[in-house]
Each structure stands twice: as structure tokens, then as C-alpha cells.
Design a protein around this nucleic acid. Structure first.
Length: 421
RNA sequence: GUGGCCGUAGCUCAGCCCGGUAGAGCCCCGCGUUGUGGGCGCGGUUGUCGCGGGUUCAAAUCCCGUCGGUCACCCCA
């Protein structure tokens, strides 16, 4: 590492096998879950008009400090997407699919942050968005989708944190009450929180700083100031989760980072993770975003899950190992390599994972490579086999020895052996 | 953006405090076994000591800066 002139940029990394196999499998598993629930994939551009992201919040670091934005050769002000919900809603507004529109996505996102465990400048998220219905059962479906997905990976140390941020009928008056309270206790707040209070009072509730805790504990809560409609919506969501048997914790101080959220918000905390970055995913309702992006007023809800963090959690819980990618058959050819060339081609056409050694090395050396490849069987071709029109099939993982098989039967025999795996 | 710790072979690390011209294990390659891996034994390859500057007769070792990693804060997936 130290000797290379170039390195991956700060906060980015190369995901290599077998970790990349695992990431691919994770995304594939999520795709299966989403498709089974009626979601269609959206592959949107990695960069967008920077204004698409301005609705995330003017007081928000993601927008103000962390965006990779640039001007292209035509003078357009673009940004690498820092999240995907805004892109998906932009696509909705642009194409006007008939609601309810259920979309899933996967892909890299970019934020110029200081890297840390589970936090990178390029990171991958998977997620869904539903545009159209404001039915609280949609909230339940979306939350359940994420929950069942975590379960299917084998994760068990996950907590669902649930909150509501109210709606336009009740949030403004609540914010006044909160701001008044915080201003009354301004002197007891940390310097940081005093600054936050000026720009986004809600986020003071999320402070982890010790001196703030006493003030926060006495602060008025959104859940106690809900309008009838917002209250009914929240109750319907919690009722639905109970019906499905999905455990949740009301977390009245849970404040999601992006400003477009209203009503239901949620986060999945990974308790197996030691690091501070233990949020494995989160989401919420954004009923005004489509209109803010120039489309028809259309309620929406969705979530995004951090792929890198989920895999860290899987490591911590010892679940979701990398899928097998080692060859099933390894061809050892000591007659010059022509046989290996032809046979691996045949085996691959037959649907088997097959590999070989290079450089016309000794049988001993090739067998060593075969063993390390993880292959289940080695197929040996030497002068004898070549003369007889046969190949020696040797078991590398058990004690069943080896046998000479006619070349005409070889591929079919191996195909049969690996038929179920 | 702020602060703590770290940066020596492909990997994990010792050496740094008390400056004297670089080590271990693993991995890799070969041989023991000129048609057979996994065990064992023997031998071998591998380093701008992150980078730049300073102090010194001499710097992996001391000092400054810088880049990268890591952890916490901030923020967030």
C-alpha cells in the first residue's frame, strides 16, 4: 500500500472479492424482496441538477457542505447525488407514472465527509419509495419490507426506532413551543447546540453532548402536539406494525437529517455495531417533496439502507457469508495446456465453474494451485490420459480417491455431480 | 470542519523511548517425491521504513509540515 503512487481517493475504497461477491449477493437479495412486493427498479443518473437536492434542507450539512458539486463543460451546475430519494421523486415528477408508484433502487452516493468506520465518501444504499397513497398502511408496508429484509439476512440485533414529525397543521405550532422552551434554557445548552438552535431547533433534540441532556429531557415532544390527522396516522402505523408482529420503539427525539420529512420517520439501529455509525437504515414520509420539485402534490414515503453498514453488522453477528464462487472443477494439464484450454471451455459451456493453471507448470505445482483455488475436484490430464482418451477425476475435498473417466463422458459426469449445487 | 491515536515486506506486526546503515511469522516460489494438492522438513524471493523538509558525522528512530488510515465530535446510511 505504501509503495503505490496512486491510491483510491480519501474516503473511498476498492471492494474486492470475496467482499464484492457478498455485496452483490446482498443487493440481489434485496432486489428479490422488492420485486416480490411489486416494486420496479429505477436506475437514475449518478449526478443531477444541483437544485434537485436543495429541498433536503438549507440548514443541512449534506446540502451546504458535503455535496460534490461541479460545473460541466456546458456550464450546468451539477452534483453527485448525496442521496437517492430526491432523484427518485424527480424522476416521478418528470415521467408522471400512474400512482401508486412503487420504486426500488440501488447504487452509489457521495458525500464529502470525514471518513470513519461505516462512513465513506462514496457509499452504497438500497431503498424503496412509494409515491401516491397517504394510506398509513403504506408506511407499514415499507417499514415491514426493510424489517423482513434484515431478518432474511439473519440479523437479529436490530431495533426499529419510530417517530412522527407531525404535519403542516401541527408542526409549526410545536416548533414554536420547542423553540420557546429551548430559548428559555439557552444558557444550559452547549455552544454547539446554541448554534444549532438558531438554524434548526428540532435537531437540538438529537444532540449527544452531555450538558444538553437535561434540557432535552424536559423539552416538549412532537408526539404530544399532534393534530388529529397526524395522530390518527401515527396510531394506524403502530397498530399495523403490531398486527404484523414487528417490534418497534417509539423514539420521540428521533430527528431525521433531511428536512423534507413529515409524519412517520424511522430508523434501524444495529446494536451489534460498536461504532458510532450504528444506523443501518432509515426513512420516512415526505408528502410535500413532489410538489416542491415542481410536480403535482403527491404524498410519498421510503427508506434507504446502507449497504456497507449492513455488511458490517452481518460481520458483527456472523451472518450472511459470501456466496460460493470457487471453481467446482480445476483442470490440471501437464501435456502443454491445449487440453486445459479446450476442457475448461467445454465445462463452462456446460454451466460449471471451471478454472485451470497457467504456465505449463509441474503437476505438483498445478495441484497446489488447484487445492488453493477451493475447487471440489481436479481433472488431471497427463500423457497417459491423452493417449487413452481419458481424464483422471480426483476428489480434492474428501477421501474418495480418483478415477479415470472417458473424455466422452467427462463433462456429463461432472455436470451430474454438481447438479444440485 | 475540530480533536486523540496510528502509518516498517503482499498480510499481521517487532525495532523507535536510550540515533549507528531493516527483522519475525504468515503468504509466495523451488526442492525432498522427474504424474498428484492438503502435513512435515530444507532452501529462496520480497522493503522509496507513507511523503517532504529540518537537526546530526549518521535518522525507521528526534523535530516540523503534509498525505492517508482509525476513533470520537459534527453530521448521517
Amino acid at each position: 500500500m505504501a509503495s503505490s503512487v496512486f491510491r483510491s481517493p480519501k474516503g473511498t475504497r476498492d471492494v474486492m472479492a470475496p467482499e464484492s461477491d457478498r455485496q452483490r449477493a446482498l443487493v440481489a437479495a434485496f432486489a428479490d424482496v422488492a420485486v416480490a412486493a411489486g416494486y420496479g427498479q429505477v436506475i437514475s443518473p449518478i449526478f443531477e441538477d444541483v437544485r434537485v437536492f436543495h429541498r433536503l434542507g438549507e440548514a443541512n450539512d449534506v446540502v451546504t457542505k458535503e455535496m460534490y458539486d461541479f460545473e460541466d463543460k456546458d456550464g450546468r451546475h451539477l452534483a453527485l447525488r448525496p442521496e437517492l430519494t430526491a432523484s427518485i421523486v424527480r424522476a416521478f415528477v418528470q415521467h408522471r407514472p400512474r400512482p401508486p408508484w412503487k420504486a426500488w433502487y440501488e447504487g452509489p452516493q457521495f458525500r464529502h465527509e470525514k471518513p470513519q468506520a461505516g462512513r465513506y465518501r462514496q457509499f452504497t444504499q438500497i431503498g424503496v419509495e412509494v409515491l401516491g397513497p397517504d394510506d398509513p398502511h403504506v408506511d407499514v408496508e415499507v417499514i415491514a419490507l426493510a424489517w423482513r429484509f434484515y431478518e432474511s439476512l439473519g440479523l437479529s440485533r436490530i431495533r426499529l426506532l419510530l417517530n412522527t414529525l407531525g404535519d403542516p397543521d401541527c408542526r409549526p405550532s410545536y416548533l414554536v413551543a420547542l423553540e420557546t422552551y429551548l430559548n428559555d434554557h439557552r444558557g444550559d445548552l452547549s455552544e454547539q447546540s446554541q448554534a444549532t438552535l438558531a438554524t434548526n431547533p428540532l435537531r437540538v433534540l438529537d444532540s449527544k453532548r452531555e450538558p444538553d441532556q437535561a434540557v432535552i429531557a424536559g423539552a416538549p415532544l412532537m408526539v404530544d402536539h399532534l393534530s388529529d390527522d397526524a395522530g390518527a396516522h401515527f396510531s394506524a402505523v403502530t397498530d399495523g406494525l403490531q398486527t404484523l408482529g414487528i417490534p418497534y420503539e417509539i423514539s420521540p427525539r428521533l430527528v431525521r437529517g433531511l428536512d423534507y420529512y413529515v409524519k412517520t420517520t424511522f430508523e434501524f439501529a444495529g446494536d451489534a455495531l460498536e461504532s458510532a455509525q450504528n444506523a443501518l437504515g432509515g426513512g420516512g414520509r415526505y408528502d410535500d417533496l413532489a410538489e416542491q420539485l415542481g410536480g403535482p402534490a403527491t404524498p410519498g414515503i421510503g427508506f434507504a439502507l446502507g449497504v456497507d453498514r449492513i455488511l458490517l453488522a452481518c460481520d458483527a453477528e456472523g451472518v450472511f457469508p459470501a456466496p460460493p464462487t470457487e471453481p467446482q472443477v480445476f483442470v490440471v494439464d501437464v501435456t502443454g495446456g491445449e487440453q486445459a484450454m479446450a476442457l475448461t471451455d467445454q465445462l463452462r459451456q456446460a454451466g460449471l465453474r471451471a478454472d485451470r493453471a497457467w504456465g505449463n507448470r509441474s503437476m505438483k505445482a498445478q495441484m497446489k494451485v488447484a487445492d488453493r483455488s477451493g475447487a471440489a475436484v481436479a481433472v488431471l490430464i497427463g500423457e497417459g490420459e491423452l493417449a487413452n482418451g481419458t481424464a483422471t477425476v480426483r476428489d480434492l475435498r474428501g477421501d474418495t480417491g480418483q478415477q479415470e473417466v472417458s473424455r466422452t463422458d467427462l463433462v456429463a459426469t461432472l455436470q451430474q455431480r454438481f447438479a444440485s449445487t
